[in-house]
Amino acid sequence: MSAVLAVQDLRKAFGGVQAVAGVSFAIAAGELLALIGPNGAGKTTCFNLVNGQLDADAGEVQLLGRRITGLPPRKIWGLGVGRTFQITATFASMSVRENVQMALLSHHKRLRAVFARAGDLYAAEALALLEKVGMANQAERRCSVLAYGDLKRVELAVALANSPRLLLMDEPTAGMAPEERKELMELTARLAKGDSMAVLFTEHDMDVVFTHADRIVVLDRGKIIAQGAPADVRADPRVQRVYLGGQSARTR
């Protein structure tokens, strides 16, 4: 199986500090890859290099064999990359359904239309997407009154609007209760397998990572110190020391 996303020797420095220092990894269709590491390890920078929010100093990001390094986020979206944000970003003046419709309007290149009634366009598709994430019953509510976990699901529906080949999720379960976390990640896994979509996510909660990721990449000070299947990563002594050690000290 060829890679949906391939990252090669990615580098980025901020004022002399190498935030990402030569990172390479790849994700296949249907695969969930978790990017983990202690605070300041370069997860967020790495993530933002892939989604186009930051420009890399060196290295390359390829989507389905096509170079996307240096493209702005909106172009990358156009090539089939959906994303959810760490701090949810929705359109507060719109209903849940309208948020999804907005993404659909953009996907179908209807944004320049000035006479059509936006509310009538792609309403059924939007509801279908909301159905997928279990939010159809709240379609007419305003995003500003939703519970946090529900907002995350709306974001997921928005991210799915362009039938992405790659889904980027920044801390998808932060601030959610354990049951909600499990639900959201199981849903994501189901969608990934069903639509053979690749998923790259960062996450702090090790339960989520080890239960739901197919593969894990561990970063420390901008470099990959381990990658592989969850069991292998968990057993890796370096990972134990820089990251999980601290975590288990917290738990015990």
């Binding site: 994303r83 929705t90 359109f91 507060a92 953009s106 928005v158 609007a161 362009n162």
Partner: peptide, 11 residues
């Protein structure tokens, strides 16, 4: 409402 989200859905 959210320039970040708007850019992320291709606007």
């Amino acid at each position: 409402d959210s320039p970040l989200r708007a850019e992320a859905i291709g606007i």
